[in-house]
Design a protein around this nucleic acid. Structure first.
Lengths: 206, 206
DNA sequence: TAGATTGTTAATCGATTAACAATC
DNA sequence: TAGATTGTTAATCGATTAACAATC
C-alpha cells in the first residue's frame, strides 16, 4: 500500500455515502451514539462489517457499551470522502433534466459547486434558479477561468458523443453522463454512466 | 445454486448493462463481430474477464478467429436482464426532476413503462409529455389497477419519508429514491438510492 | 497449416464472515 | 462486577487473474 487511503478497500469506500445518509438521519433525530448492531440492522448489513468499515475511517474508536459517536463519525466520513475540498462542475445540456439538476441545491453539502449550464440552442440560454445557462461556445472559456474539472452530461443520446468531445476539448477530465451511450474518451478522462433506466430495471429484478 | 441465474455472479450482472451500452454502439456503427480483446480495451476491462462474463450469458459461444456476434449478444443480454418482461412504474414528486424523468423516453428499451406521476400540489397536476400527473390521493388506486411495483421518488428531502410511506402503503415494493435521505421501509421493500451528489463526488475523487 | 481467438482449470487476490479476546 | 459492545485474528467465500489447451 502506497498511502493511507489505499488501505481502505473499495468496497468500504462505496458504502461510506450510505453510512453518511443514515448517520445524518440519526443525528437529525437527536441520536448521539449508535451501535454497529443498530446500524447493521437499519441498513441491512452485518454488524462486523460495519465495525470494520468504521474502524478504517473514524478518528476515534467506538466506545464499548455505547457505540459510535454520531457527530464525530459524520465529520470523519465527510473528511475521508473529501467533501470539504471544493470542486467546480458544469452541466452540458439544458433540457428538462439539465435544468432540474442546475436548480438542485443538494450538491453544496458534497463540496461541489455547480456553476453553470451550457446548451447549443439559443432558446435555452438564460438562467435557471439563479444560475446561468450559456451557449456552448463559452464552455472552454468558463472551464479555464473557473478551473472546472467535472461535467454532467444531460444531452440527448444523439448529441452525447459530440458534446462529450467538446467538454474534453475544453479541459474537462471527468464526465457524469445521463445519455445511455458508450462514450469514447481519450486516456486520462473518466466517464461514469448514470443510467436511470438501468437503475430502475435492476430494482425490478431485485 | 438453486437456479440457472444464480450461477451468474453479481459482479458479472452489474457489468452487463455496460456491455449492452457498448455493443449497441458497435451495432449502430455496423460492426458484426467483436473480440473480447476489443471490448476489453474499449471498456477498460480485462479480456479474460469479458470472455467469462459473456460465456455466462450468451446462448452461443464466440467464434475463434472472429469473436462474438454483436446482434446475438445484445439479444442474449437483454433477455438475461429481463428487458423483455414489462414492468409498470410511477413517479412520486412532479417537480423539475420528476417532470424531466416523466418526459424521458428511454425507459421503454428496458422493459419499463412509466405510466404517471403524482404530486401533493394541485398546481403540478395535469400532464407532462403526454403523461398524466395525478394528485397523491390517486396513487393507491392507480398502483392497484395497473399493478405498479416500482416507484421513482423525486420529492424534496423533507417530504421523502412521508411520500415513501404512502407509496409503500399503496402497494409499491421497490423504490428508486433521489432524495438524499435514508428511508425506513418495512421488510420486503427494496430501496435504491440514486444520489447525484454522491455520484459526482465519487467522480471527483477518482 | 499457422495464428488469432475462444473457453476452462488452477492460482491469486480481496472481501466477508466467524470466533474470540479486549474494554468500558 | 456483569454485560454490552468494540476491535482483531483466522477461516471462508467469491471474484479476478494467469496459464494453457481447444477451435475455427
Amino acid at each position: 500500500m502506497v498511502n493511507a487511503e489505499s488501505a481502505v478497500s473499495r468496497a468500504t469506500v462505496s458504502r461510506l455515502p450510505a453510512y453518511l445518509r443514515y448517520l445524518k438521519g440519526e443525528a437529525g433525530k437527536g441520536v448521539e451514539y449508535v451501535s454497529s448492531a443498530a446500524i447493521a440492522k437499519d441498513m441491512g448489513l452485518s454488524a462486523v462489517g460495519v465495525r470494520k468499515d468504521l474502524a478504517l475511517v473514524s478518528s476515534r474508536p467506538g466506545k464499548p457499551r455505547f457505540g459510535f459517536e454520531v457527530r464525530l463519525l459524520i465529520e470523519d466520513i465527510e473528511k475521508f470522502l473529501g467533501y470539504h475540498r471544493w470542486t467546480n462542475a458544469v452541466i452540458v445540456g439544458a433540457g428538462g433534466l439539465g435544468r432540474a439538476i442546475l436548480s438542485y441545491e443538494g450538491f453544496e453539502n458534497y463540496g461541489i459547486h455547480v456553476i453553470a449550464a451550457f446548451d447549443n440552442s439559443p432558446a435555452k440560454v438564460g438562467a435557471v434558479g439563479g444560475k446561468p445557462v450559456y451557449p456552448m461556445e463559452r464552455l472552454g472559456d468558463v472551464v479555464k477561468r473557473s478551473d472546472v474539472k467535472v461535467c454532467i452530461l444531460t444531452v440527448p443520446r444523439s448529441a452525447a458523443q459530440e458534446a462529450c468531445d467538446q467538454a474534453v476539448g475544453a479541459g474537462i477530465n471527468a464526465i457524469l453522463s445521463f445519455a445511455p451511450v458508450h462514450l469514447l474518451v481519450p486516456e486520462g478522462v473518466t466517464v461514469k454512466y448514470e443510467d436511470l433506466a438501468v437503475s430502475l430495471a435492476e430494482l425490478c429484478g431485485a
